[in-house]
Design a protein around this nucleic acid. Structure first.
Lengths: 105, 105
DNA sequence: CGGATAGTTAAGCATGTGCCTAACCAACGG
DNA sequence: CCGTTGGTTAGGCACATGCTTAACTATCCG
């Protein structure tokens, strides 16, 4: 969980993810629009793989990377849970304010 | 955007957010379950405020913090956008595989 | 084989992050 | 007023992060 958000907290890695939503890519293809050395891209890739957002297989000398959407969903679920929990609290608060308890305070 | 995910990438800050979904809290109340010095909590709070996830007002000598749910929604939207974009790609791919183009390859 | 291509490893450096302690300020509360 | 409480500022330390270059490996192609 920590690692997923830490991975997403870097703009470069988010760009890589956006690229991968448009289909699989090799390491070089990922690196191309990034004005950054290849080893740097590799490190970002390792971060993304370590937390399960991306998977990659190597065939011959080219490694092909693709998205692992369950990873994104995990983060999305946490956010949604917080937000809906907060909304439920507001609902309860609204009910309280309309009740006698609320009016008497 | 960067800052939002970076803020969420720390477990302590996520705990603070979870606490705030259950209602507003003072700095001390936020610090209480965190086994951490008060200044440290302050710094986390500043991070959360800087990226718009939390707001706080000071009345007398106690600062009261509450959630700013639009911040969470921004992050949730990005994640959802990536995921649905990816799903649309799979839809197109599925259509392609069922078409003549796909069968011929 | 031998050179170009695609990736990987290793080492190092600059900066950022998370935490601490110590000192300080500002309101209550008697 | 003066002590206590709640928060804030400043400075510093240990470690993590993001990047670099240089050297190395493994494949493909002619």
């Amino acid at each position: 969980m920590d690692q997923v958000f830490k991975a997403l907290s870097d703009g470069t890695r988010r760009e890589m993810i956006e690229r991968l939503t448009r289909g699989p890519a090799s390491v070089g293809e990922l690196a191309q629009p990034l004005s950054m050395s290849l080893p740097a891209v590799m490190q970002h890739l390792q971060v993304l793989e370590a937390c399960g957002l991306v998977r990659s297989e190597k065939a011959g000398r080219v490694r092909t990377c693709h998205l692992e959407p369950d990873g994104l969903r995990m983060a999305e679920d946490w956010l949604g849970g917080q937000r809906t929990g907060w909304e439920h609290r507001l609902d309860r608060l609204g009910g309280f304010l309309e009740s006698d308890e609320g009016k008497r305070s």
